[in-house]
Design a protein around this nucleic acid. Structure first.
Lengths: 134, 134
DNA sequence: GTAGCTGCAAACTCTTTGCAACTCT
DNA sequence: AGAGTTGCAAAGAGTTTGCAGCTAC
């Protein structure tokens, strides 16, 4: 039983075949798949899984904070397992997504929120850029 | 003729009655209205304006960079005139939106993009927080 | 005069949901 | 056994678009 499956069990979710497949797909994805992409990847393992189940499962995982739902400047959602905390730089020409971390920015976010009288709960930081050609 | 109308004219847009009303509404809005809200506000001035026109106009203004399209963690768009550059802190309990600026963060964003080999074109920074009660 | 704009309604895309059947625990 | 889960198809929300008529330039 994987860590992910354990976390689900702890939350009281039943571990069905479909869920196991979806978790496996997420765990093996190194990118930020859309719902459609998660669906395609699960179908290769179990072709009977429905889109509705993929949507429902991703929503559950999001509520459990096992997954982060992104909405870059597209009009559909992308998901990603919640492992290490990082932000994204999106290549405006190709759509490529690059991950980065930056301790100084983390610190400043907290400070800014605090100075406005808020506890920081969550945040979204996305850079959109164009590759520098040499 | 307002600055906004001038900018539109320069881009080759015809200044119709509907557009004038929509621009006026945006100009007088101090918040970040949704398309629906822009529509409601325009209807009070000219009740014949259609939703389709509001959508089309906002899309045009977005392309001209006169307006910024936001999608906070809701599932609809909000718009805002592109005046001074700033970011947003969203109150997760009430949905209130607070604006802020921070020069240090601006600098860091540029640096991060550069260090990844990109020219920064655009960015999205949103803090989601809960008000600190005393 | 004509390219561009508009309102209307229909179409589209992504996402959610009601329901009856099924399945983990 | 029973609550939770599933697939299907239908519904929903937000947004876009084809078309015929209208309007700014």
């Amino acid at each position: 039983m994987t860590d992910l499956e354990q976390a689900c069990a702890k939350a009281g979710l039943k571990m069905t075949g479909q869920r196991r497949v979806i978790l496996k797909v997420l765990d093996e994805s190194e990118d930020h798949p859309s719902v459609e992409e998660v669906y395609e990847r699960t179908k290769e393992i179990d072709s009977s899984i429905s889109m509705a189940t993929v949507y429902r499962t991703l929503n559950l995982l999001d509520e459990l904070d096992l997954v982060t739902r992104h909405e870059f400047k597209e009009n559909f959602a992308r998901y990603e397992l919640n492992m290490n905390h990082h932000h994204h730089l999106i290549d405006v020409e190709t759509g490529d997504v690059i991950e980065f971390q930056n301790a100084a920015i983390e610190r400043m976010k907290e400070e800014i929120a605090k100075s406005l009288g808020y506890d920081l709960i969550e945040c979204r930081l996305e850079l959109y850029g164009k590759k520098i050609k040499k």
